[in-house]
Amino acid sequence: MNQARMIELIDVAVAGHMERHLLLQKAIERGRRGPEPENVADPKICRLGKWLYGSEIDEATRRSEAFTVVNRLHNNFHDCAGRIMDLARDFKPEQATALLHGEYKTHSDKLVRALLLWKQELLMAERKKRVA
């Protein structure tokens, strides 16, 4: 996969994971009418997960530190989101909200920072190629 495509997908992933916060907040408010917890907890279902687990990423990229870190943080993010959905569906909005604004926010922030760092690394590599 070329670097420009990876940068584009990283931007889409960052936007998508920022939207996830709103989805979880609405699910907490609605209780049992939100998405299934196992779907929210599955890191392979969202756009970023489809990309990370899909065939577009080559093996060299999969072995990179950036991929390893993003993949780990992404899994942690979805695990926490699934727990929020469990609490929401069990009509425990106070606990779900506390998790959303605490641990989930921490996971989300770390994931976004890792994605932006990866993007920065790709941009720098692209600039080096142009200069060389």
Rank of each mutant, 00 (worst) to 15 (best):
T97G: 08
C46P: 03
Y53T: 09
N76F: 07
H107W: 10
A96T: 05
L48E: 02
P93Q: 05
L123Q: 15
C46A: 10
K105C: 06
L117E: 15
T97P: 03
A81F: 02
K92M: 13
L100F: 04
G82P: 01
E126T: 14
L115N: 06
F91L: 13
K110N: 14
R63M: 12
L122N: 01
N76G: 08
R127D: 12
K110L: 15
R113P: 03
S55R: 15
T61Y: 09
H78M: 06
D79G: 13
G54M: 06
I57H: 01
Q120Y: 10
I84H: 00
R127Y: 09
F77T: 00
D90P: 05
T68P: 02
C80W: 07
F77I: 01
K129P: 03
E56G: 07
K105A: 13
N75H: 11
A81T: 01
T106Q: 14
V69Y: 01
W51Q: 03
N75P: 02
K110P: 04
H107S: 07
C46W: 00
T97C: 05
L48V: 04
R83H: 11
S108K: 11
L99A: 01
A66S: 11
L52R: 02
E121H: 12
L111R: 03
H78G: 05
A60K: 15
A66E: 14
L100H: 01
H107Y: 14
A88W: 05
P43I: 00
E121N: 14
K105D: 11
L111S: 02
Y53V: 08
S108T: 03
S108N: 09
T97R: 09
E126S: 14
A66N: 07
L117D: 12
D86Y: 10
L73D: 03
R113M: 12
K92R: 15
K119R: 15
S55N: 15
R83L: 10
K92F: 07
